[in-house]
Simulated scan of single mutants.
Amino acid sequence: MAEHGIFYWNELMTRDTQKAKDFYGKTLGWTFTEMPMEDGTYVVANLGDKPVGGFFPMNAPHFDGIPEHWMSYIAVDNIDERLELAKAHGAEVMRPPFDVPGIGRIAILKDVGGAVQGWMTPAEMAG
Rank of each mutant, 00 (worst) to 15 (best):
E11N: 13
H69E: 07
R82F: 09
G127K: 04
V44H: 03
W30K: 09
M94W: 02
G102I: 08
L85E: 15
G25Q: 06
E68R: 10
M120E: 00
I79T: 10
G40H: 06
V112I: 04
I74F: 13
E3Y: 12
G54N: 03
D16C: 09
E84K: 15
E92M: 03
H4P: 09
F63Y: 15
P96F: 11
Y42M: 12
V93F: 05
D64H: 14
D80W: 07
F32L: 06
D80G: 11
D80F: 11
A86R: 01
N78A: 08
H89W: 04
G90W: 08
N10P: 04
M1V: 06
H89C: 04
G48L: 05
T121P: 02
T14C: 10
A45R: 02
E92C: 00
P67E: 07
V44S: 05
Y73A: 14
G113A: 10
A115L: 08
N10M: 13
A75N: 02
F98G: 06
T27E: 10
V93T: 09
H4R: 08
Y24G: 02
G40D: 04
K19P: 02
G25A: 08
I108R: 02
P61L: 06
I106M: 06
N78G: 04
M94Y: 07
R95V: 15
G29S: 06
P36M: 14
D64C: 10
D99Y: 09
R82P: 02
G127W: 00
